[in-house]
Structure formats: C-alpha cells, structure tokens
Design a protein around this nucleic acid. Structure first.
Length: 112
RNA sequence: UGAGUCGGCCAGGCGGCCGCGUCGCGGAGCGAUCCGCGCCGAGGAACGUCCGGGCUCCAUAGGGCGGGGUGGUGGGUAACGCCCACCCGGGGUGACCCGCGGGAAAGUGCCACAGAAAACAGACCGCCGCACCGGUUCGCAGGUGAGGUAAGGGUGAAACGGUGGUGUAAGAGACCACCAGCACACCGGGUGACCGGUGUGGCUAGGCAAACCCCACCCGGAGCAAGGCCAGACAGGAAGCGCUCGAGGGCUGCCCGCCCGAGCUUCCGGGUAGGCCGCUGGAGGCGUGCGGCAACGUACGUCGUAGAUGGAUGGCCGCCACCGAGGCGCUCGCGCCCCGGGACAGAACCCGGCGUAUCGGCCGACUCAUCCG
C-alpha cells in the first residue's frame, strides 16, 4: 500500500487484533476487484528513532513475506507497531504478526 | 616502566539460503508491468539544523531609516560566527590548555547579601585634641557633647595604589624617595595586534557593554514542498475596494525611487493533492613535486558509479578474529572448554564548517618522573 486512503480503508473497515507489540488490521474489499493482496506498515515515532523504526519495519516485512502468498486476492493488511515492538527479536515479532493476522482474518470472515 | 599532552585513522571480516531499490542488457506483453542476468547501493557523525555558500524564483536587487550579526592582529577561503599563525591575559613543573579578547578618563543605567559606607565615597568600633560632668592615691581613668581622622579592626567578589620616611593633636599623596599602574611625547623593533627603552605629567582612574549605547566591518527576501512541464477535476454565489485621479503586487517593518498592473480581499459552497524534470561530477578524493612556519595554494598523474518518495540498502544462520567473566590442565604464561558482549546512529538538492552522541581498537609526535647503560 502506498496511499493514505488505502490505509484508512483497511483500518476503518477491517477487523482488528492486537498484542503487546503489534496491531493487525485485516480487510477484504469483497469479490468485486481481482487484485493481489496488499500490505502496509505503520511505525510511528512512539516506537523509537529512525534506526529502530526501520529495523522494526524490516522485520515485520520479512515476517509477513512468508504469509502474503496465503492471503486471498483483494485483501488488505495493515500492521501497526506499538512502542513495545522496539527491542523485540525477529522471532517475537513474527509470532505476534502471524498470530494476530490469523485472528483478525477469522474475525472478519465470521462477520460476513 | 609509570603518569600525561596533542594529532590522525578504523567503525569487525568471510560465506550460505531467502529478499529490496536505481541503472544497463536480453526476453514477454497493445500497455501498466513482469521475468532472467549483471553493476552499484548509508555515516563519521548520514544526527542537531547553529552559521556560511552554490543553485532556483522574486523586474535589474537601488537609496535612507530601522533591524540583525560579527568583534585582539595578520593570513587562508567561494564564504563564514570556520581554520592557521602570532599578540595579550589566565592556568600547568612541563608537553600544552583555556579566554562571549573593541570602547567603561562620550553619555545614561545597575552593583544582590553582608557591611558604617558600593561610587562627585563613607565615621560602626577604634584613634586624636577641645569643652562640660562628677571621681581622684593629683599620674590619670570613665561618661556626655560638638568636631577632626581612612593609619588600625570588622563586612564583602570588590573599600579609592604598596613600602619606608617627613609631617601632625591624631592623621591623610598633604609632601618626598623607590616600586606598581595610567596618560602623553619621543626613540628603536615588527605588515600589524603589540613589545622594549627614555622623558614628562598628575598622584590613582572599581566592576558590568550577554544593560542601553558608541565605534569598525558584514547582511535584499524566500527556499528543492525552490522552480518548471504534463495530465486531470469542479460550480458557482454574496459583500467591499478599484480600472490611468489606479486597487493590489514585487514575502520582516517604515519612507523615497523604480517596475508590473486589472483585478484584489473576506465569507459561504465545491473540486484536486497523480506523473516527469530539477537529481546528483562536486569549491571532489588520493599520490607526488613545488611555494608557504601553517591553514592552504598550485602543476601533473590517478580514482570516479546511493538517488528512495508509505521512502530501497534487509531477514535468518554458520565460521574466524576482538573484548570480558567462569572452569580445567600444566612445562606458570600459554593451551582447551563454555557463557556473554560489540556503541552512537539511517541519505532525501548539494557542498564548507561548528556543536552534540559513541562499545572499543590502532598509529605517530611530544612532556614529566624513575631506573639501567
């Protein structure tokens, strides 16, 4: 995702699941458009300095890379990092992201 | 060997698997784009955004006032509030370090607390003679009053030169000698800040200019969201001012001058925030020679490769070095095993500086102390 409108849609319309380190928003826009799954990251200054934020973002991106192929087409995922993400290991971040993604996805699919 | 001073440099290395961005080549597709291969891909501070430039736009960047900045001297530089050398003051045995270092004898203002008094000085104690009071062992001691006095005490960051003498009731640059310091003149040295010497003067002149101020020099404004091109969207309405007797604009304020000039301002309502250029080769790094004490300049040779835009340069693992605890072995300073650690920090138009952060390590020059020859 590259546009703020996409982020806003995914966060507002989608289902949410959080942990101590991250919050995952999942949204499926419906079967109208046949486009690949989209992923976005939000890492605010509350997490830390530029170096820490970059590292968190890169680890989350690496963690989600393995999952993105299992996502249905037309879905949108936004991962927000919380301040506790700063200093976490890759394994901790990956487990949180995967776990929360699963819960959010089940929640949204149950709603429909 | 031990303490220390100054300067420079590095910012772990190698490999495997899976990935990212620009560019080039090849291929697929009408195209958006995708696939394969290859090159390159964060820092010494990329940071803070505190100065100085380049670049872009504002007509060409004009004059005055105001405002801001700098502040020993000479040089370096595109420029600087930076750097180098020197001067002066202060600190250190020394290498060396520190200084917001123009003017307080142009003016105005301020100087807390303490202290009697804090700036044309000032009598709290003390000292001194005089007058008066009562006392008296007739030497004087005490008290009161109007005075004299800055030599002594005490306060303070700072008390209006220091030492010795003359002088006096006691004292005082009141006067004298020497010393310190100041101003002026002359001589000598230095490009200069300034230094050295001689003479004269008056005896003395406190601090703060990061208080106002004065002096010298410098400064037009805004910034790559500069600026330009392309594509695309919508819907206008009301009020005020103005159309050569001119609104408004030319981006800190005011005045003048100059230029542009037919629209501008406010309110309500509506729409868009996509792509490309700018965009990385520049006062560039390194080496050698020459000039210079140095900063730096110059000639020649050589090396050149980040360019993202929800913002790439990564994720995981192994091995080897480095540092620090612990254990074992012995030939006592090495070997083996195991655990832990590796900082500060992420380009966004580009340079020159400054400031700040930083686990550690390496190199060079110099100083002091001690020992040996």
């Amino acid at each position: 995702m590259r546009r703020s409108a996409e982020f806003a849609d995914a966060i507002r319309a989608g289902a949410r699941s959080g942990s101590r380190r991250v919050v995952v928003h999942y949204h499926h826009s419906g079967s109208t458009r046949d486009e690949p799954a989209r992923v976005g990251f939000v890492v605010s200054k509350a997490v830390g300095g530029a170096v820490q934020r970059n590292l968190v973002k890169r680890r989350m991106r690496a963690a989600l890379r393995a999952e993105v192929h299992h996502l249905p087409r037309g879905s949108a995922v936004v991962v927000r990092a919380l301040p506790a993400a700063n200093g976490s290991s890759f394994a901790e971040l990956r487990d949180d992201v995967v776990h929360c993604l699963g819960r959010a996805r089940r929640s949204e699919e149950g709603r429909r």
